[in-house]
């Protein structure tokens, strides 16, 4: 027998163990999705794109970056399709394929966040905000009410840096992730 041809659905199956064909498009995921009103495509639409093997459309879809990973869809899915995990996998593929057309600020946030971890081992919020501003271009926006944070002792200028930073760098390398 010939090997089955690679489709987006088989890739998802391989990456997550989830067979996207189990989605029967009932829409329960989208009924409870807190971001549905702001997204063009809802969880069940993403499942549909995957089943239809519309790789480009799925990987370049902005809506996948609007997922909060709140897992409501997966918790209520009647057929164990786990849309949240599938969307996670589609995002990963999107980054890998470099077709990622993620909203600039969301991407900037994730990158800024990971860069902080890679260099310090822990998140330095002040540092992350600076990094985020640079990456998103949102230079003027006071994204976290920094003065208020400072006055409440919630923000520090100094980053906590762990001793095992080399181990963290190793993890990033082994996972093949460069923020």
């Amino acid at each position: 027998m010939s090997a089955p041809s690679r489709t987006l659905a088989t890739d998802i199956l391989e990456a997550t163990g989830i067979n996207p064909a189990t989605c029967y498009q009932c829409g329960k995921c989208s009924a409870g999705c807190p971001m549905a009103s702001e997204s063009d495509l809802r969880p069940h639409n993403v499942m549909r794109l995957v089943v239809q093997d519309r790789r480009e459309a799925a990987l370049s879809e902005q809506s996948i970056w609007l997922c909060l990973t709140c897992e409501t869809c997966s918790a209520r899915c009647p057929n164990a399709c786990d849309p949240a995990r599938v969307i996670d996998a589609v995002r990963e593929m999107s980054i890998e394929a470099e077709v990622a057309d993620m909203p600039r600020n969301v991407a900037a946030f994730h990158r800024a966040f990971l860069e902080q971890i890679r260099t310090n081992g822990r998140l330095h919020e002040m540092g992350m905000v600076m990094e985020y501003k640079l990456r998103s271009g949102d230079l003027m926006k006071d994204v976290i009410n920094a003065p208020g944070m400072l006055s409440r002792g919630k923000l520090s200028f100094r980053a906590e840096r762990i001793e095992g930073v080399a181990e963290i760098k190793r993890i990033f390398e082994k996972c093949g992730v460069t923020p």
């Binding site: 009932c26 829409g27 329960k28 999705c33």
Partner: peptide, 28 residues
């Protein structure tokens, strides 16, 4: 309405039903 219901809860005098219409592509 074609779609499963995500949540049902009591809110005061009414019972809230959160659904989705997969044909018109809207939360209901």
């Amino acid at each position: 309405i074609r779609g499963r219901v995500s949540r049902i809860f009591r809110d005061g005098d009414v019972v809230k039903v959160w659904g989705y219409d997969t044909l018109s592509q809207e939360q209901v």
